[in-house]
Design a protein around this nucleic acid. Structure first.
Lengths: 215, 215, 215, 215
DNA sequence: AATGAATGAGAGTTCATTCAT
DNA sequence: GATGAATGAACTCTCATTCAT
């Protein structure tokens, strides 16, 4: 009695345990992929008995869902704020989205990877609610592009939705390259260089000459 | 006993059966993902007994490998020819790569998807030989970009490898959008429009103004 | 700390808690069967934390044992008194046994059901001590039948043990029918009617004619 | 090559395997009870790998269902024929039902026990379709009793449904006693003696005197 | 006394792979 | 070549039980 009681209530401890398990799950999923990861792998990584995972999550699938919901939601929120931010130009807003992504990549690369690679593909044609949440991200970027086209900032001969897909695809593969250690962006300098390349390629184009009409 | 043997040698028939199974496998993998696909699903789709699959392939993994090797190899071959084709500018070569991809997407979208999504992720940290073959594709594009930088065609402040990743990422996500029916490119017109958007975004940039120095 | 302690000693409170848990257990076992009932189901029904059950009982099995012992013991005691009650005829004693059963059914149907259906089957070939206690019940009725045969009250061509099994089997299935809402005996009238049918069938026979020699 | 091919097609062999597994399942369920029986126990008893069980049955529950459906159905069919057999008196028909049961008990005691003890209780309040099939048996006997009451063969002060429950309850417990080795009926003589006791108790009554009005 | 987080043995089920026919 | 019955390793999930608080 009158022992430690380090800090916080049991509710806080429970929240910590949950986070601890989610963190371990993200790491394991990122390393081995969702299907190759066993629940016991997650437990081992988290340093708990695997039964405990079922105390906090209904199933292995629900663990993945939680990773998605609790992180993608944050991204969507920021995106939604950006979308309506009239202080920035459309291009500025797209840059901000890319920044958001690349910053997140530096802070929590495994989370980004799991979200993009596992969730978006896990039950591709089965549960579409996750897909819908995903689609929201594309729609947000699509809106920004459309608006930029109206203001003349962005070329009007682009299909905005294809633009959004290209935009995310580019960011995703950068993420994959990062996870595979083919792309470096751990330091601030590397991060800046990466952002620059992304900006150039997606916004300004690769070509050195301002020749604006390929095809 | 003493049945038909309809046409051709038994070797030809065997080759047909093999293709039949590979075709079914690609469809099933594209729909459900590799790990959620059962060998019996492939067999059912191919209209054969699942035991037969083991006459033509050592294992389920080998089926996926074959999908990869027999298709990516073709891509690599074309890419390798392009890389050294001095008749085209670097930008022209990149366009050709994109064309190759988008054409393949229209002809065999499921194959493209399986290659990109399943193979590249299947055994991420386990077998690296497939990854190496994958890397060859990135290297090819990376080379073209580098060369373009030397000739002054392509902006020199880009990281060529990051450029290659962005390039493939963009194409991959377009593929995903296509599979998810969010992007249309079934007709020739749609294909052309898609290519245009891809060219613009990756080569010329989204921005309408030739302002060449974002950041 | 220094909480209520509403009435009675802590021993009384403990006894109450025990009863409360046993009552909940009987209800849950009757509804879902022993094996499908979780300790947490019992706890939920009793309105306590499931850990508490282990303060009052060694294990889930012991809860079932307690249900049995503390109720069947009562029945055995009454049966034992009846067996030696020379004021009643053998038939009168059998009627009393049936009455005892049917009265109990009206008062505590779930308890009766759990005792008969779960205890008698739970560990059929594993622990025989419970089975022995069960057997005591059959023996008691068997004795009464034997004695009735000696006094000429009961037909001598019956096997007394088979008679006892038939006797209990009849009562048990009536219990099941009651639990399944197929047999009504909630009111006093229904109870009397039920008893009459039981008496007639088991003692006097179904047949209207006094033709005493079927075969 | 040119090996045994003992007898029958592969369809027959499959049917045999199914029966072999069902037989093993009945034995194991009868000995240990459904919930204490592991799928591997059934497999071991049947001499097959447990995976094979899932080749023939969807789940452990489906094995139990099959035991029920494929045996109770037979009983119901005979009962239904008996019910409408106008060549027999009501009492004669009830005797036939009892005979049917006791004969079955001698031929396949484990099957009878599993049907009565496991199926009827397994998912008591969950799946009612099995319960309905069960109820059909009670209804059949109930009908016979009602008819007997109309023709004056059977005492009119009995509740027919209660009568049916008593009837089956008696037979069931006889079955239990047999399984527990407390009741013998392996030989023809023992079987006849058992039938006699059942007839007497249920139809003629236990009492020696033709005193027809207890209570 | 009371709680419920934590544990892990145990059971059901899936499915890649083998092999007799 | 072709079939699908047979096998069993591997995995998810359940839940009785323990124990720190």
């Amino acid at each position: 009695m009158s022992t430690s009681q380090k800090r916080g209530s049991s509710a806080e401890v429970a929240a910590d345990r949950r986070k601890q398990i989610l963190k371990a799950a993200v790491e394991v999923f990122a390393e081995r992929g969702f299907h190759r990861s066993r629940v016991s792998d997650i437990a081992k990584r988290a340093g708990v008995a695997y039964g405990l995972i079922y105390h906090y999550f209904q199933s292995k699938d629900h663990v993945l869902n939680s990773v998605f919901e609790e992180n993608w939601a944050v991204f969507l929120k920021v995106l939604s704020e950006l979308k309506d931010n009239q202080e920035l130009t459309a291009v500025g807003r797209l840059k901000s989205v890319a920044d958001l992504f690349i910053d997140a990549l530096q802070i929590a690369p495994a989370t980004i990877q799991v979200i993009i690679q596992e969730v978006s593909r896990s039950d591709r044609f089965v549960e579409s609610n996750k897909l819908d949440a995903f689609e929201d991200g594309f729609s947000g970027v699509c809106s920004i592009i459309s608006e930029g086209q109206k203001t003349g900032e962005i070329r009007s001969d682009l299909d905005p939705m294809v633009g959004a897909y290209i935009f995310f695809g580019a960011l995703e593969m950068v993420c994959t390259g990062f996870m595979l250690k083919r792309i470096q962006c751990s330091t601030t300098e590397e991060g800046s260089a990466l952002k620059l390349t992304v900006y150039q390629m997606l916004l300004a184009g690769m070509q050195a000459e301002p020749a604006k009409d390929p095809q």
